[in-house]
């Protein structure tokens, strides 16, 4: 087992209010690590810090270190980091352009592809990997805004696959989706972990138990417990964890 990401003593603040307190945790290569916990437990902040999206907000401050392949991400070029650690948001956010251009947008800007033929191949491959190809292969040049919510979210996954990251961060990716679309997204995640390391933040405890290898429980900005998923769900060490997963609060 190789550690893909090591988080050491990470604390995060918004307007000097502590939202994440001295967090130390590691993420293993090619695993799915779920992060569960009630609202305001710091899950999303944690995720957004891993690819430094939270640095976009002025009121955000942090201490501690995060290593990606033993390289400190806070000393890395920010764009290069986000290419390697990409993120899927809670709501699907297709860019207001065609399906084809949505996929090719980032690879083009990052200089990953130049030739038209390479682009076509990349678009097809990414859409296939996100199991969207059959739905949209006849309308690649229509607006992505006209797709259904589930399709949009899979398009966003395809868009991430097109830049070939190492880690994918899922921020409650199914909160706006119906059960069938949710199942499809979960299916893709299981598919994807062969190639990528995945972090999944979710409000849905069942989802965590279905897809993840390990699960971490956050409460009020603190990591309470992290363990193999089946272990954490069957015999949690902490009382708070047990209360949460059995639905006594949150």
């Amino acid at each position: 087992m190789v550690d893909k990401i090591q988080i050491k003593n990470l604390s995060c603040y918004y307007n000097k209010k502590c939202v994440l307190e001295s967090l130390t945790i590691n993420v293993v290569k090619n695993e799915i690590l779920s992060v569960i916990g009630p609202a305001n437990s710091g899950k999303t902040t944690f995720l957004r810090t891993l690819n430094r999206m939270s640095d976009l907000e002025v009121s955000f401050k942090r201490t501690g270190d995060v290593f990606l392949n033993e390289e400190n991400i806070f000393y890395m070029n920010m764009e290069f980091l986000r290419k390697r650690v990409s993120m899927l948001f809670a709501m699907p956010i297709p860019l207001p352009m065609s399906i084809y251009n949505n996929i090719i947008y980032a690879p083009k800007r990052l200089g990953l592809v130049n030739k038209k033929s390479d682009m076509d191949i990349l678009v097809e491959q990414s859409l296939k990997d996100a199991s969207l190809w059959n739905d949209v292969k006849d309308r690649l040049h229509t607006s992505a805004m006209k797709m259904s919510g589930g399709q949009q979210q899979r398009l966003c996954i395809a868009r991430i696959l097109a830049i070939d990251p190492e880690v994918i961060l899922f921020d409650e990716p199914c909160s706006g989706l119906d059960p069938i679309s949710t199942a499809k997204v979960e299916e893709s995640m299981l598919e994807l972990k062969r190639k990528y390391t995945i972090l999944l933040v979710t409000n849905n405890v069942k989802q965590a138990s279905r897809v993840s290898d390990r699960t971490a429980f956050f409460l009020m900005g603190k990591l309470i417990e992290v363990d193999k998923t089946e272990k954490l769900f069957i015999s949690p060490k902490e009382k708070q964890t047990e209360d949460y997963i059995t639905g006594r609060f949150g």
Partner: peptide, 16 residues
């Protein structure tokens, strides 16, 4: 704002 976040999260620079 979400368009900007989506683009930035893919490693695209701010100016791009």
């Amino acid at each position: 704002q979400s368009f900007r976040e989506a683009s930035l999260s893919l490693g695209v620079t701010r100016w791009q």
